[in-house]
Write a protein that binds this DNA or RNA. Structure first.
Length: 345
DNA sequence: AATTCATTATCAC
DNA sequence: CTAACGGTGATAATGAATT
């Protein structure tokens, strides 16, 4: 028995809480729109902004065109992180078996906490109340027999919703949902599935037309997962904290550049940031990866591995710049984005 | 033959 | 009329290089 907790438009809601004058008017948290010339995206927006068609992940320039009168705020990670910690302290009080998906999303395994769905619903209600009393924030909760069902259920009645799907209701509940509601099916997979079945607007029940073999041949492991998920089955565990496997930074230039000085200078900066963060981890690194996106949006990575060593700024910079310059000199085109990432040993 | 490395693709949030 | 498009981290597939 799994509970999925999802804070309602988290970043925007926190900003409204901190500054109630933002309430009742469109609010967008994300990149600086720069009067329509900004290059980033929307992180989150409140429901008033959604009325203008604004959504998470949308280009900030597009959002600005739809609603230039909205308030645009930068992402204040520090603040959301603090609030998130408070929320997870409450989560921990419900069950020690939980999974932190992001600042604002969690799975909680209730199997050892309650005997039936009636009790699970009570837990859901009290969790919502605790979060609202202690943090003055609303969330949506979904409860189901596995992570997928819980997650789809939490979407059902947003914002401030609570939806319980008993196992006997699972198939009926998921069958009419769009396939994109299945975690792991993104735009590419949706598109491929539409081509396979020869039509669009696919529902989860439509996936039953594909055999397990067909799905595995086409999508590998993900295909096998999809086969089961289409039938309401998801055996993935609610996994607690895992060690970080990699850490990186990337930046998009305000304007594409071919200036080697600017590229090298920027690379030095992000190398420094990554080394700073990596040193805090107190772990050795074994690979440096550089990322370079050119103006046509084509993105390349180059990486070098070595015997694990304590990360230093010099090491990351020296290993990385070699890879980067090789790429840049070969392509000789304007660069849009640079990144560097380290993999821990 | 098995493991690691390098690269790309895809996804979530 | 259309396109516009971050940053961080994970996992999988695939082929080449090493052990």
């Amino acid at each position: 028995m799994i509970l999925h907790l999802d804070m309602d438009c988290f970043f925007a809601q926190v900003e409204e809480r901190e500054n109630p004058r933002f309430k009742g008017k469109p609010l967008v948290v994300g990149a600086d729109p720069k009067s329509g010339k900004g290059r980033g995206v929307v992180s989150t927006c409140n429901y008033e902004a959604r009325k203008f068609g604004i959504q998470s992940g949308m280009a900030i320039s597009k959002a600005y065109k739809s609603c230039s009168q909205a308030t645009y705020l930068p992402v204040n990670k520090e603040l959301y992180s603090r609030v998130s910690e408070n929320i997870f302290r409450i989560v921990e009080g419900v069950s020690k078996i939980y999974e932190r998906v992001s600042f604002d999303e969690a799975y909680i395994d209730l199997s050892k906490v309650v005997k039936n769905y009636k009790e699970a619903e009570k837990i859901g209600e009290s969790l919502k109340k605790l979060i609202f009393r202690q943090e003055n924030l609303t969330c949506s909760v979904g409860i189901g027999e596995n992570k997928m069902v819980a997650k789809i259920a939490s979407e059902e009645d947003k914002p401030d919703g609570l939806t319980v799907i008993k196992p006997s209701q699972t198939l009926k509940f998921i069958s009419k949902k769009p396939i994109r509601d299945i975690p792991g099916i993104g735009p590419k997979t949706e598109n491929k599935l539409e081509k396979l079945l020869g039509r669009s607007n696919l529902k989860i029940k439509d996936l039953k037309a594909l055999s397990k073999k067909q799905l595995i041949d086409e999508f590998g492991k993900k295909g096998e997962d999809t086969y089961f998920k289409a039938r309401g089955k998801d055996r993935s565990k609610v996994g607690s904290e895992n060690k970080t496997k990699s850490l990186g930074r990337e930046v998009t230039f305000d304007e594409n550049t071919t200036d080697p000085e600017e590229i090298i200078y920027t690379f030095k900066n992000i190398s420094k940031e990554v080394s700073g963060l990596a040193e805090i981890e107190k772990r050795k690194i074994k690979t440096v990866v550089v990322v370079c996106r050119f103006e046509e949006f084509d993105t390349y990575t180059r990486q070098i591995s070595f015997d694990p060593v304590q990360p230093t700024e010099e090491l990351i910079y020296k290993k990385g710049i070699k890879l980067l310059l090789r790429l840049f000199l070969k392509k000789a085109r304007p660069v849009r984005l640079l990144g560097v990432r380290v993999l821990f040993g």
